[in-house]
Structure formats: C-alpha cells, structure tokens
C-alpha cells in the first residue's frame, strides 16, 4: 500500500478545493459543478439551436459549415454530460462521503491529526 498525501492539504481554501483528488467527495462535487457550469454557459451562448446536426440538418443551412456542426455536437455532449454525468457525480460524492466515514482508518486518522497539530506549532 502506498501512502497517500492528498493535494488538498493547502491552507488556501480555493486551492484546496481545486486540488481535491478525483476520487474524493470534493473531487466528485467539483466535476458535477464544472459540467453544470459549462452547460449553463453554452445555453447562455444559445448553442441549443445548433443541435439540429443530430438529424443531419446543418444549423446554418450550409453543410460545409464545420464550425456550426462542431458547436452543435459539443453542446449535445455537454448536455448529456449535465443530465447523466453531473447528477451521477453529485450522488457519488454523497455516497463516498458516507463510505469514507464508515471505513475511515482510526490509526491513520490519529497520525494525520497528530501531524496537523505538529504543523500548527
């Protein structure tokens, strides 16, 4: 077993959040929020109309307009990620938080706490 020093021990709360490991409740929560934020931005940008590419119709009427097609496809991917991926990360964050509490290693918890106290001196 390798010991794990999480990147999230920074004292800067924002850095601590951003550096949260992927497999952690905070890491999952950040992914969920990131997907939802990108989706919100794409909606504000009005990219939903570009999804006519799904049925083979170019949003601009010009089949050579690759940019419109890419934008439509990108919106579709983020849309599905926001309805499938984001809630899934959110749920997983809650489940993982509960599991971590249940399976926490008491000896490691004690040593980490001691380390934290020492570093505060």
């Amino acid at each position: 077993m390798t010991t794990d020093t999480p990147k999230s021990t920074s004292r800067n709360p924002i850095l601590r959040i951003l550096r949260a490991p992927f497999f952690s409740p905070l890491g999952f929560l950040i992914r969920a929020l990131a997907i939802a934020s990108v989706f919100g931005l794409l909606n504000l940008w009005g990219l939903r109309d570009y999804t006519s590419v799904v049925c083979g119709t170019s949003p601009s009427g010009n089949l050579a307009d690759k940019t419109s097609i890419l934008l439509g496809m990108f919106y579709a991917v983020v849309y599905f990620a926001s309805y499938v991926g984001a809630p899934l990360f959110l749920l997983a964050a809650g489940i993982l938080a509960l599991l971590e509490r249940r399976f926490a290693d008491p000896s490691r918890e004690a040593s980490v706490s001691a380390g934290e106290e020492k570093s505060c001196d």
Binding site: M1, T2, T3, D4, T5, P6, P21, F22, F23, S24, G27, F28, L88, F89, L91, A92, A93, I95, L96, L99, E100, R101, F103, A104, D105, R108, E109, V112
Partner: peptide, 21 residues
Amino acid sequence: MPLQKRKRITLGLFSLLLATA
C-alpha cells in the same frame, strides 16, 4: 478525511457504480 490511496480509489469507484445504478 484522507484514506490510503488504493482504498480511496476502490471506494470512489464503488460510489460511482452505485450512483450509476
């Protein structure tokens, strides 16, 4: 609450799987 890496990944994957289900 930090956990050992392998344990954390296992629990994370299990959480994702359960969330998907």
